[in-house]
Amino acid sequence: MTDRDDLPEVNGYSRVSVLISTVVGLVVAGLALFWAQGFRIGYESLYRVNPSVEGGGIGSDWVFGNTIPALDFLIALIHAADVILGAFILVMVFIHWAAFQRLADQMREPGEDVSEAVAADGGSPNSGDRQGGDGA
């Protein structure tokens, strides 16, 4: 690029910080993988006959279902969060949908005289195929 005078000066990220962050990201991801792999235990130690559970025995844990109340609470909490935030997100969709309709009404209809129109990308207003690239 020979001439960037009309392009803005932008405080970007330096190469060094990007490089350091990349290395840290990859190392932490690698360690996380290593840590998660460490959870593996031998199949031998799993699900033997379990006499301490009432009516215990092989497969009895499926019958009893989830026996940790804290987990039940967590799931109920997340269900509530899903519903509340879901409703909020829906409100946001509707507000934006309606706002977009109003904004579209402020714009020129397709085919209207565009002699004074400017393109959103700062390109040529008369070549409609260059606006946002939606030439189809």
């Binding site: 714009m107 020129r108 565009v114 004074e116």
Partner: peptide, 8 residues
């Protein structure tokens, strides 16, 4: 925005 054309 009033100077922009809506996509068909």
């Amino acid at each position: 925005i009033e100077r922009l054309s809506l996509s068909p």
